[in-house]
Amino acid sequence: MSRRVEYNRFGGPEVLEIVHVEPPHPAAGEVRVRVLATGINPFDAKVFRGMPTSNPQSVQFPVGNGADFAGVIDELGEGVTAVGVGDTVMGSRMYFAQADFVVIGSDEVSPVPAGMTIEQAGSLDTAGRTAWASVESLHLSPDDVVLVSAAAGGVGVIAVQLAKRTGATVIGSAGASNHEFLKNLGVIPVEYGVGLADAVRAIAPQGITAALDNFGHGFVEVALELGAPAARVNTIADYEAPEKYGVGAIGAAGANIDDLRKLAQLIADGDVEFPIDSVFPLERVGHAYDRLLAGHLRGKIVLVTQ
């Protein structure tokens, strides 16, 4: 028998359970990955809490949890030749990742490059694709001043560094405990919440030209107030803002597997930092989401299976 995270009702992290199931096996064109690390994302919590934005009506109980994973291929389906048993790979499969095994199409996994830890690889896919696509959507240049919310979080910490690589001036909102960290990345930190607009004006009196919202809670309104055109604001956290203000909502689907591989290599080479906030064993999945929901993260939270 193998383990997987599952839930049978909506609620807080307490609804997540470890259940024992028959190990899956790959069909033609698929591989089975022995999962070593699996990241957690805010979207997961929206789904198991039954929030309207997650379309809970589509969830059929019991349902698994998590999307991102990394591990070692231990079984091949018929016709698979591009990868082999023993290859260390990463990928994403919604509702299936937090488990001992994931079965997935052989063309949906990427090799983990040398220099990247298994914890980084297991938590990169969703956050990495989201950061890559959202930054690309703004077409930044050295003439830009871009404001990024949740700048030390899983998506934000990658986004600010990709934005810096375009030559843009990057201002990042985060809790005070992460300000020194952001400075070391070349980002100008500001405190989030009340007073954000004034804090940004003190740094950029001319206003901003673009914004990336990873936080919600009125950030889009602040970005527009500071002068960013709606066409150069992207949010992954404010589900009403695209229709209300005409801002973008480019997420992980906006980046492909080649983009992910480029980003993974940047991280492996040390050109982009990808910090791991904390690591929990699979059995403590509820505690991991408690940590996520408490906020003030620096990078990603990861579950490990061994």
Score class of each variant (00 low, 15 high):
residue 36 L to M: 13
residue 7 Y to Q: 07
residue 189 P to K: 11
residue 278 S to M: 07
residue 303 L to S: 06
residue 262 K to Y: 03
residue 260 L to D: 07
residue 36 L to W: 10
residue 301 I to E: 02
residue 264 A to C: 08
residue 20 H to N: 12
residue 293 L to C: 04
residue 273 E to Q: 15
residue 82 A to P: 06
residue 253 A to D: 14
residue 160 V to A: 07
residue 72 V to T: 14
residue 303 L to E: 05
residue 163 A to S: 03
residue 86 G to T: 10
residue 6 E to F: 03
residue 150 A to K: 00
residue 189 P to N: 12
residue 136 E to L: 12
residue 126 T to E: 08
residue 195 G to V: 05
residue 303 L to C: 02
residue 55 N to D: 11
residue 206 Q to V: 04
residue 106 S to F: 11
residue 224 L to F: 09
residue 79 G to Y: 04
residue 203 I to E: 11
residue 281 P to H: 10
residue 115 G to I: 08
residue 52 P to W: 10
residue 243 E to F: 01
residue 1 M to L: 07
residue 282 L to F: 11
residue 181 F to G: 00
residue 75 E to G: 08
residue 43 F to E: 04
residue 269 D to A: 14
residue 259 D to K: 10
residue 237 A to G: 06
residue 100 D to K: 09
residue 246 G to L: 09
residue 212 L to F: 02
residue 93 R to Y: 13
residue 97 A to P: 13
residue 298 R to K: 15
residue 164 K to I: 03
residue 169 T to R: 15
residue 29 G to Y: 10
residue 128 G to N: 11
residue 214 N to C: 15
residue 275 P to W: 00
residue 228 A to D: 00
residue 57 Q to L: 05
residue 135 V to T: 12
residue 40 I to S: 06
residue 105 G to T: 03
residue 225 E to P: 01
residue 149 S to V: 12
residue 252 A to M: 15
residue 46 K to A: 09
residue 219 F to R: 11
residue 147 L to W: 06
residue 94 M to Q: 02
residue 70 A to N: 05
residue 272 V to C: 11
residue 204 A to D: 07
residue 265 Q to G: 03
residue 157 V to F: 10
residue 67 A to F: 04
residue 82 A to D: 14
residue 258 D to Y: 13
residue 105 G to K: 04
residue 105 G to R: 04
residue 300 K to L: 05
residue 257 I to Q: 09
residue 137 S to T: 13
residue 186 G to C: 07
residue 305 T to R: 11
residue 291 R to T: 07
residue 191 E to Q: 00
residue 15 V to K: 06
residue 181 F to R: 06
residue 156 G to S: 07
residue 36 L to Q: 14
residue 116 M to H: 07
residue 184 N to V: 01
residue 84 G to M: 09
residue 138 L to V: 06
residue 245 Y to T: 01
residue 104 I to E: 02
residue 89 V to D: 12
residue 25 H to E: 04
residue 240 E to D: 14
residue 233 V to Y: 05
residue 234 N to V: 12
residue 35 V to M: 02
residue 170 V to D: 08
residue 158 I to D: 06
residue 83 V to M: 10
residue 177 S to M: 04
residue 248 G to V: 00
residue 171 I to Q: 05
residue 48 F to H: 07
residue 54 S to D: 04
residue 166 T to W: 03
residue 282 L to D: 01
residue 164 K to N: 14
residue 216 G to V: 00
residue 131 A to K: 09
residue 217 H to Q: 15
residue 217 H to G: 11
residue 269 D to I: 02
residue 39 G to P: 00
residue 199 A to T: 00
residue 74 D to H: 07
residue 147 L to Y: 03
residue 194 V to P: 14
residue 267 I to W: 05
residue 199 A to N: 01
residue 227 G to S: 05
residue 24 P to F: 09
residue 158 I to L: 15
residue 92 S to Y: 11
residue 182 L to R: 01
residue 87 D to A: 15
residue 115 G to W: 02
residue 40 I to L: 13
residue 112 V to A: 13
residue 102 V to F: 15
residue 98 Q to F: 03
residue 108 E to H: 04
residue 78 E to I: 06
residue 187 V to G: 14
residue 171 I to S: 08
residue 298 R to N: 10
residue 196 L to H: 11
residue 266 L to N: 05
residue 175 G to Q: 00
residue 294 A to R: 12
residue 270 G to W: 14
residue 66 G to V: 03
residue 111 P to Y: 08
residue 39 G to F: 07
residue 208 I to Y: 12
residue 35 V to P: 01
residue 218 G to A: 13
residue 250 I to C: 09
residue 160 V to K: 09
residue 292 L to F: 01
residue 231 A to N: 12
